[in-house]
Amino acid sequence: MNTKPEIDKLIEKYKAKKGVLIPLLQDVQSIEGYLSRENMKYIAEKMGIREAEIFGVATFYSMFRLKPLGKHIIRVCKGTACHVSGANNISTAIRNVLDLKDDEDQTADGFFTFIEVACLGCCSLAPVIMIDDKTYGKLTSEKVSQIVKSYYK
């Protein structure tokens, strides 16, 4: 995909403003779901910033991804409330359903990306996960396995 025209437009939008690198990277990331090496390099050239600085910012913040995303994103909450309500078991159950080994975070078919996050802000429903934009709460290992499987249908 040629993302350059779109990036040019974004750079135009932010050019005259202060402190724009993070919002710019957020917008560029939303084009393809991640920041590719080429795109970072392109921004560096266009903005006259060192590539290293862009890479530094992109790796500092957990929202930036340097790898493509799967079709669906599962976010498992690892906040305090969810932790004491058994979030580890929820994670294990999902990883089992998806057959993810060790620290893999993506299914081989690219269908799911698995991310652990700190607090989704729905602590009263702990343990909580989000699949794409939908939040599921009060989960058990069984419930969550069924929910994840239902996406394959």
């Binding site: 202060k18 402190g19 724009v20 690198l21 993070i22 919002p23 990277l25 957020q26 530094g56 910012v57 500092f60 913040y61 957990s62 929202m63 930036f64 700190a118």
Partner: peptide, 25 residues
């Protein structure tokens, strides 16, 4: 409005300022 990008330390005020300026927090 400035949207954060997921770093706990950015809640600390001097880190928050660095982050608004577009740097590592």
């Amino acid at each position: 409005i400035k949207e954060g990008a997921g770093a706990f330390v950015c809640g600390e005020e001097t880190a928050l300022i660095a982050s608004i300026e577009g740097k590592r927090g």
